[in-house]
Design a protein around this nucleic acid. Structure first.
Lengths: 385, 385
DNA sequence: ATAGCCGTTGGGAGCGCTCCCATTTGTTGG
DNA sequence: CCAACAAATGGGAGCGCTCCCAACGGCTAT
């Protein structure tokens, strides 16, 4: 017998459902059932059809599926900001990567939508074209017309990195406020009283949250913050360097500074060094993010860890859940609001050499997966609660 | 008259071609012609139909189009590597961003394919499913089964960041070899004779190119390189730090080091500092990439600039050109091989304080767009040549 | 006036799936 | 042994486009 169906397939050729059906001597419908895991197929038939599908390396045409099913299994990741400086931070790359991984797991595709020009057209195109089933919006801006538009159009989306003011918008965020609060508390406990901060750009939610959490922490410990001790940066190293230079000229000079991102903390450290001062002896520094570079600065940077990977993963998973829910329940007004815990990682830049136990623990959590497990349990608590 | 067609459209509803046709009192075909810029439509009719399309915010259904046209206008960016450490470098983020921008310009979508598990399945799925019209493969590995597979399947793709050994594979790359050559030449001209290098992982093409270009440059200037002066890193800061520590123990100690990436150069600088030595007085350092951080290290890092943005942009543009060419000519054996020039940026880390003119020029090129223009003309030369 | 032609327009067929309903087959109880 | 039902299967009708070919008008050339 000549096994024609086992010959190497023609390069660049793809079979159709119908052709597979003919080879298996069944109908289109039955093959479709096998592919979509419909239980109403006799096991023997199912097995035979799978063999043929594999032998011919058949994949259903995504466009045809999308047309018939009215969904594309594509979700978009929207980063609607001026992007020039964005990629200096490892935040977005990590986010992209983790979203992609989560999509992969669920059989979805991830499409990138770096909204370069905030034009009306771009939004329309993104939403109305319906190439994507839903969007992950990494919008950190406090005011964003895009969100309003999505709501108007009833387009499915989740918001990432941003508290939501509305109960009907699903939101995934790290607990920036609490992380910053912890940083404040830590500095006060170490005995510092003149404590300053370099914030992110204050039109972004994360920057506000971190500033507020920090000031709130100081206040709770009975520390006042003069206006001169609050400098606004823009996440860039350079802006923080300049902010730090201004802080160094303040009288009295602050003893400690909370910098709203590790990337900016790098700039702050350089400004301190350039001024001939030392960290932490002359001025203590605490960062935020726990980027890899934070562990290798001189001195190693005390910082607040935020679980970026889990943020992305959870955002994608939540969106896909939303999409696969019955439309009726998807309309429901009670969307999920997930807040992932942040954690203070104590290293050397805050003058904490005295407490080896804390430092060791910080080192350990960079190696082990312990942190992940902890988050996961907290997340599930949030989901069921 | 009640202008029903000017009422706000129903949320979440999308019209079809047919419905637009009915509103305009023409046929399906005519509307399709308008959308696809077919010249055979009377100007008056065309204008009237456009009005209606805009008034209703109509966009053609991408799935239906893809099914009928047999192409999706989606291209994929494949990054087939262990991704854990990848995003420490700003290389990939810049690449992603520039590819996305180029796609945007041409009306294409960019789909991200971070190939996490190098399984056979993933490749099959990527190629055979034909969700994408073509791929940009950012494969820096010297050996890559994926490329072979793409060729077998006659799947359109361009290779990025890699010399191609085959004339039939379109390739976009920066001139790593020449950049490294320039670095070597520069160090020798400054009077150094004991010159070492920390390479990238040698299973990657870019790492090999930079090493070879560098050694070739030294050789051309009559300098020998002992084996102990060549340390292999893995692009991570940490690996370079360790490599540098080994170099510092070599006897005689090298006077200058070429580090194959700026990110690694950061680690090297730290190792030098930790050993109580100074840059460039005790040991000069030259990096590669010209990442933003290179300008703010202490001392500012002399490095080789590579035009990452243009790499991504050109890769996407080349692929799209390829896809839109007539299939006959696309088969042609003469694919484009574009090599973008690299440029030495002289700062302070190589002991070059004596030549202010060069330093000024380096600073200028970070601010102005001058560099971009120069590349562009070189590129077009490459294209027409 | 009539054939011939070009600039326009309309409608059928089909892209490769899913979904629904009708039909066939297999299984059980009276 | 046949009705009654469930399990398994087949085929029609779309999904919303593009592409092709036929048809239509108005025009010039004969």
């Amino acid at each position: 017998m000549i096994a024609t169906e086992n010959l190497p397939r023609q390069a660049g050729t793809t079979l159709t459902l119908e052709e597979i059906a003919r080879l298996a001597d069944v109908s289109r419908s039955t093959v479709s059932r096998v592919i979509n895991d419909d239980p109403n197929v006799r096991p023997a038939t199912r097995e035979r059809i799978w063999q043929i599908i594999k032998a011919h390396d058949y994949y259903p045409n995504p466009a045809a599926r999308a047309l018939a099913e009215r969904r594309s299994r594509v979700i978009g990741l929207v980063i609607p900001q001026a992007l020039n400086a964005i990629f200096a931070d490892p935040y977005f790359p990590s986010l992209i990567q983790s979203c992609a991984a989560a999509c992969d797991e669920r059989g979805y595709y991830l499409m990138l939508s770096l909204v370069l020009r905030q034009s009306d057209d771009t939004f329309r195109w993104l939403i109305r074209a319906r190439h994507m089933d839903g969007l992950i919006v990494a919008s950190a801006l406090t005011e964003d017309v895009f969100v309003t538009r999505l709501l108007d159009e009833r387009f499915p989306f989740v918001l990432i990195g941003r508290r939501s003011e509305r109960p009907d918008i699903p939101t995934i965020d790290a607990d920036n406020e609490h992380g910053a609060y912890l940083a404040a508390q830590h500095l006060v406990q170490l005995g510092y009283t003149r404590i300053a901060t370099i914030t992110g750009p204050l039109n972004m939610v994360a920057a506000l949250d971190r500033r507020d959490g920090f000031l709130c922490g100081l206040q709770a410990m009975g520390i006042e913050t003069p206006a001169a001790y609050i400098q606004e940066g823009d996440w860039s190293e350079w802006s923080a360097r300049q902010g730090m230079e201004r802080l160094l000229q303040a009288t009295p000079r602050p003893e400690a500074v909370f910098v709203a991102s590790d990337n900016m903390a790098l700039g702050a450290l350089k400004a301190i060094q350039a001024a001939g001062l030392r960290t932490p002896e002359d001025i203590a520094v605490v960062g935020f993010d726990d980027i890899p570079a934070a562990a290798t600065t001189d001195p190693p940077l005390t910082t607040v860890h935020q679980p970026i990977e889990q943020l992305g993963h959870l955002a994608a998973a939540t969106l896909i859940d939303l999409l696969e829910m019955a439309p009726a329940s998807a309309d429901g007004a009670h969307a999920q609001h997930i807040v992932l815990p942040t954690e203070l990682i104590v290293r050397m830049s805050c003058g904490q050499a005295l407490r080896p136990s804390a430092t060791q623990r910080a080192a350990a959590r960079n190696l082990s997966d312990e942190g992940g497990v902890k988050y996961r349990s907290l997340i599930s608590a949030a989901l069921t609660g």
